[in-house]
Amino acid sequence: MKNPPNYFVRSVDHALQLAVMLQVEGPFGVGEAAQRLGVAPSTAHRLLAMLVYRDFAIRREDHQYAAGPVLSLGGSSQSRTALLRSVAMPQLAGLVERVQESANLQILSGDHVRFIGSVECSQALRVGNREGMVFPAHLASGGKVMLADLPPERLDALYSEAKWADRLDERPNLAALRRELRNVRERGFAINAGKTESGVTAIGRAVRGADGRAHAAVSVSMPSSRFSRERLPDLVSALTLTAHDIEEEMRGADAPRIRS
């Protein structure tokens, strides 16, 4: 279960958010960094300068910042994730308008999920921005719907005793996990009731690629006090519409351009 530390250091949190943005989205400038963090450009510039100093970022000739040696990913992976996020963010905003709860976009990274997009709702009591955060996949709603789509041998490899040798106390019961994922496949959505953060309930649904496989997940998160089984059909319906819209836009972005 992940809760904010007692001594929350805002500048460190901002620097880590920038590092994640650089890694999964690609280059950006000081202005965009400031806007995303909600800070002054001078503050964003100082944060980026520190990331450059520690090799988490590089400053290019066009004054854009890009992932440095510590963060560098394969170009295709980076651009694909950036495209997914750019397509999904307006759809997440629309989802928030429909359900009046915070919404997130997640991708699978080994046995964890990474939040690559987040839109907060406007309610006074709400789940905050989770962008850049990482949670165990078998506990998060988005992680469950993506794990449920994996071939059995891949799931076995992710949760083998050898892979979890240094954290066996955290390793899920594989038989129980398979049963839960079978239910997720049948229902088409997953629920996380306080498993990753106390007092928070989330519902997740897969975003599928042209190959029919789950490439990402969308979820809505809310205070558990505001969740009820009566709300579930409407929440799942809204998630389904959002996932389909993202899938359609991604297919359009992938379609070969016809030259005139």
Rank of each mutant, 00 (worst) to 15 (best):
D211K: 14
A238S: 14
N173V: 14
L71Q: 07
E32T: 11
L125I: 11
G68N: 10
A165H: 08
P223G: 09
R54V: 12
G75N: 08
I203A: 13
W164L: 06
R98S: 15
E25M: 06
P69T: 11
N104W: 01
N173P: 07
V200L: 11
L22Q: 12
A193Y: 10
S260Y: 08
P136L: 00
E180F: 14
D62M: 05
I246M: 00
S122T: 09
R205Q: 12
R257D: 06
G132Y: 02
N183G: 08
L181M: 06
E247Y: 01
D234Y: 12
E97L: 14
R98F: 02
R187S: 12
D55M: 09
M222W: 12
E247S: 04
A67V: 02
A243W: 14
L37S: 14
G199P: 09
S76D: 04
E247I: 15
L47P: 01
A214E: 07
A66H: 03
V113L: 14
L239A: 09
L73D: 05
H138S: 07
E120S: 07
I246N: 00
R36P: 01
R167D: 10
D55L: 09
P172V: 01
I258V: 12
V70C: 04
V96M: 11
N183S: 07
A253M: 14
A148G: 10
V99C: 09
A88Q: 07
E61M: 04
L84K: 04
P5L: 02
R85K: 15
S102Q: 00
S219A: 13
R130N: 10
A148D: 03
P27Y: 04
R231T: 02
S76H: 02
L84R: 15
A175S: 04
D254K: 08
S224Y: 06
G74S: 11
V24S: 13
V30E: 02
N104H: 15
E197R: 15
